[in-house]
Design a protein around this nucleic acid. Sequence first.
DNA 1: ACTGGGGTTAAAG
DNA 2: CTTTAACCCCAGT
Length: 396
Amino acid sequence: MEPSSWKLAPAVSALYLDHLFGDSAVPSFATSAILAAVPFPSHSTPRFHRARLLRRLASDPLSASALSSILLLASTPSAPTAAAQAHLAVAAYLAATGDDFDAVVGVVFDPRVAAEGALAACSEAADVVGQFRAAVGTPSAQATLKSRWGNQSAAERRVRELIEAEWAAIGPSLLEQATQRIGGDAAPETWRAADEATRSMYQQLVGEERAQEIHALLNSHAGPTSTSTPEHIKFINKLKRSTQELHDAVDDPLPAAKEDAERAKAILLAKGVKPSGAPWSSSPTSEASHPRPSLFTPRNVVRSPLQTNLYASPSQTEKQPLHGKFKDGQHADQKKARRKARKWSEGEEIALKSGVQRCGVGKWKQVLLGNPQAFHDRTAVDLKDKWRNLSKRAPA
DNA sequence: ACTGGGGTTAAAG
DNA sequence: CTTTAACCCCAGT
């Protein structure tokens, strides 16, 4: 790879980084290398910013800087509960294990740092904060708190849960959104708003076959309503094309990196090793994550049975008969075993809600495929059922 | 093949 | 024992 051959406008680089950093399947060593090689974006997108925070947090989950990362994430909350619990756990851990209890409590539970706001989503937080403040200058009380909150792996688990929830909520990249507008289900609206020249560009992008389908849809319900502005779409479209060219040029390191990650994961699985210890903290995404459908490859997602969930509870990393079926004469009447019920994580709930916002209620398959990394072994029917439950709980 | 809606299971209250 | 959440079954499109 010759970085010197990349001529990339900062605005395009922003889109590119938005796309890659926000994909949890891309390992952080790869994103770091990419960031060093391309021009720093003129305007970094919120998704890019968030993804950087997550990657930083994953590599250093229990420190003062981790605490400020969590605060930043919580300032625009997507997973309020997880953020509050992670914040509380890290702050308490730092206080419990620090050399100078009083000083650390003064900093990490400083009321002026707006920590109170971030902690509001966690009901036990106020109580715990009170206990720490009360223990200042009282060694006996400190001892209790130290044993209660000094557990490193417990604190790391809270951070990991936050990271999982945030990845699930991060949503599609700008490029993916543009692709959806131009070639996906939202295409008719977009095409209606476009002039002839723009449409022929679209046609090049999506291929003639798809373009005809879209035209058919367009004509079938020729409604007048259109909301997108052609200039905006044209702009996105232009960027998308330059980015595609860039991708062609840069293609090398990513597949290699992903291959490494997959290989490492396969070895782990073959040994039957469960991701219980610290591996996630050193390379958060390498052994993780279903590959998302890339912009640059057809969106036919086929999950390999090898792909398991990084964050799956250790108890059920073994076989689940979702994928396998018996069809031999002897056991013809064998009933498919019921999957063990797994509680939905906050991250999955958030991914579901944002997916419904994007695709609409009822488009369960789209929601699922639109964010495959977020859902761990859920089917479209599972999403539908979960939505039914959520609607019961909050019928607003 | 997807979706919506009724049915079942098991855990929580 | 009742309620709730997750999962299954199946008929209609």
